Computed example of a mutant assay.
Amino acid sequence: MPRHMTRRRRAAITVPLVAIALVTAVPVGYVASLSVRSRDDVLNGGLLPSHLYWRNWPDAFRAVDLGHYVANSWTIAAGSVLLTLLIAVPGAYFTARAGRAGGRLATLVLSSYCAPPVVAVLPLFFLLRNLDLNNTVTGLALVDGLANVPVAIWLLDGFVRKVPRDIEEAAWLDGLGTWASLRRIVLPLIAPGVAAAALICFFLSYNEFLFALSFAQDSGSQTLPVVLSLFQGDKNVEFGQQAVVSLVGIAPVYVLAVAAQRRLVAGLSSGAVK
């Protein structure tokens, strides 16, 4: 193929990708702009600051203990992912291998995700209260972990279906039971899908707001999304400080997404075809 044709193809792919990246970066850039603007400057309109107002950064760190809330968010997200995978991996194995019964379970699990989350707030509140888990990091991790199970099963079902049954049957002939073959044969083969599902469920839990607001009234267990809402008062909104907290919350998750993007893309693409 001629070099000029190769260059044209590269340009045809590169230009749209650069345009999409720039459009995606606009909201983050605007938040960064808000973090160095005073309240009056924000209310006057405009996308760029008329002058740099750096006091938002020290004021935001003095207003709230950002490290504590970021740690809460990460702890809850990590704990919820662990619980989700413990349930979703065998659940996806059953939905993929159990025929009609598995299909019925998949329908039941996915239908539970169709209801708006607010309908579960009241029963979950009383359940956590009876378990003495209100206002605790453990309670939020439990709720988020269970809430993300349908998503994880839906993602992992396709990966399990791609594993040939012949491999499992050979393992059964060698004396392995169902659970042992799942742990020693199927799980290593669907590891990219498990990594992708774990990342997606981590992001869902990290950004969750409704349950965190409803079940964590104590500052010791509140997460970063809840703290962001506290900067909006009855009369004044601290736009700059809110933007600072947003950037601090985005940064570690962005680093995680960039570091794990290959596994995420590889996992999702390998499970795209059933």
Score class of each variant (00 low, 15 high):
175 G>I: 07
82 L>V: 07
71 A>F: 13
163 V>E: 08
134 N>V: 13
61 F>R: 07
160 V>L: 08
147 A>Q: 13
155 L>H: 04
160 V>R: 11
154 W>K: 01
49 P>R: 05
64 V>D: 00
97 R>I: 01
39 R>L: 08
148 N>Y: 13
81 V>S: 05
89 V>E: 05
52 L>V: 14
117 P>M: 15
172 W>E: 01
170 A>D: 03
158 G>L: 04
73 S>P: 00
57 W>F: 06
102 G>R: 02
176 L>D: 03
110 L>F: 03
147 A>E: 09
94 F>I: 13
51 H>W: 12
64 V>L: 07
72 N>Y: 03
153 I>E: 00
69 Y>C: 09
141 A>N: 09
48 L>M: 02
70 V>R: 00
106 A>L: 13
131 L>W: 15
143 V>K: 10
133 L>C: 11
163 V>L: 04
50 S>E: 15
167 I>Q: 11
41 D>R: 08
152 A>N: 13
93 Y>M: 06
124 L>N: 13
145 G>L: 14
100 R>H: 02
85 L>N: 02
147 A>S: 12
52 L>T: 10
126 F>H: 13
88 A>H: 01
105 L>T: 02
141 A>V: 12
142 L>E: 09
41 D>G: 02
106 A>E: 10
97 R>Q: 05
137 V>Y: 00
150 P>M: 12
149 V>I: 12
102 G>M: 00
72 N>E: 02
92 A>F: 10
53 Y>F: 13
153 I>A: 05
171 A>N: 07
33 S>P: 03
97 R>V: 02
32 A>V: 07
49 P>L: 15
176 L>N: 09
30 Y>S: 03
133 L>V: 12
175 G>R: 09
